[in-house]
Computed example of a mutant assay.
Amino acid sequence: MQRVEHVMGFPVSLRIDDAGDYKEAADAVFAWLREVDERFSPFRPDSEVSRLDRGELAGSEVSQDLAEVLALCEEYRLATGGAFDVRLPGRGLDPCAVVKGWSVQRAAEGLAAAGARRFVLNAGGDVVASGGPWRVGVRHPEHADRLCTVLELTDGAVATSARYERGDHIVDGRTGRPATGLLSLTVVASSLTEADSVATAAFAMGAEGVGWAAARPGCEVFAVDAGRQVLRTAGFPVAGEQPTAA
């Protein structure tokens, strides 16, 4: 089965190649993502995140889910020396960089619990895959109709942070200025929670973020820096010979 919906501001596509009826499981995936958007979007004034940011909720009153997300945000803030920060001066609380990967990973775990074994869940270009191999293209950071590379993913996740969709939207929390040291950075990890958070955190760090991400256990990295140099860890799962991003 295949299904596409627009949720959380981007297209989410689900493909399940197993035999059987997975309509209920697919319904649960999209219902969960809509719930996450309602509860955690900083752009909705009635969301839990917005209410917490306005001081209408005490720390002890937040849901277990939001407490988990905020703990992950703090983990990455400390790990990057403040480069990754969801509480930037002059801005409201915005944990979206963690919420996206965390919520889509949980949706994928729900599919597996429902018995799906061969599936791919793509949320705005960030992917969780099971039962591959699946081929996933990494977009060229300067040419929308070209790929930097194609990776082969069996069971795991891949996420990319870049400037090509939303401009200089990722800020280095240490300086308060947009992070411009990289054009794009892609991370492969066992979960999308890890891949998406590490990709954003590393991008916020700039050029030094490539080595930081590569040193994270279980992470493989493909990056294009501001000078258009391609940097790739030895274990990045490239599928055959591919063109470079130069």
Results as ranks from 00 to 15, higher is better:
residue 15 R to S: 12
residue 170 I to R: 02
residue 99 V to H: 12
residue 176 G to A: 06
residue 228 R to S: 15
residue 191 S to G: 12
residue 19 A to T: 09
residue 156 G to F: 04
residue 239 A to R: 07
residue 68 E to H: 13
residue 140 H to K: 12
residue 161 S to Y: 11
residue 11 P to H: 01
residue 143 H to Y: 13
residue 138 V to Q: 00
residue 204 A to Y: 12
residue 197 S to F: 00
residue 203 F to D: 05
residue 84 F to K: 08
residue 51 R to A: 07
residue 79 A to C: 04
residue 205 M to L: 03
residue 201 A to L: 11
residue 229 Q to R: 15
residue 115 G to E: 13
residue 33 L to Q: 04
residue 73 C to P: 00
residue 91 R to I: 07
residue 217 P to N: 14
residue 49 V to P: 04
residue 101 G to S: 11
residue 205 M to G: 04
residue 73 C to D: 01
residue 244 T to R: 10
residue 86 V to K: 04
residue 176 G to E: 09
residue 165 E to R: 15
residue 182 L to P: 00
residue 148 C to E: 07
residue 225 D to Q: 04
residue 147 L to C: 11
residue 144 A to P: 09
residue 105 Q to S: 07
residue 71 A to V: 00
residue 188 V to C: 11
residue 203 F to V: 04
residue 196 D to S: 06
residue 107 A to Q: 03
residue 224 V to P: 02
residue 74 E to I: 05
residue 43 F to N: 05
residue 182 L to Y: 01
residue 132 G to W: 14
residue 242 Q to D: 07
residue 223 A to T: 11
residue 131 G to V: 06
residue 213 A to W: 07
residue 199 A to T: 01
residue 235 G to M: 08
residue 243 P to D: 06
residue 61 E to V: 06
residue 157 A to S: 12
residue 7 V to R: 13
residue 167 G to D: 02
residue 28 A to C: 00
residue 33 L to A: 04
residue 178 P to W: 11
residue 121 L to V: 05
residue 26 A to R: 01
residue 166 R to L: 01
residue 189 A to L: 05
residue 51 R to V: 03
residue 218 G to P: 02
residue 243 P to K: 13
residue 121 L to Q: 01
residue 227 G to S: 15
residue 185 L to R: 03
residue 42 P to E: 14
residue 200 T to V: 03
residue 81 G to P: 00
residue 83 A to T: 02
residue 171 V to P: 02
residue 23 K to R: 15
residue 58 A to Y: 05
residue 180 T to A: 15
residue 233 T to I: 08
residue 58 A to P: 10
residue 201 A to M: 14
residue 224 V to W: 11
residue 152 E to K: 15
residue 135 R to H: 11
residue 76 Y to A: 05
residue 92 G to H: 08
residue 15 R to Q: 14
residue 172 D to F: 08
residue 5 E to G: 12
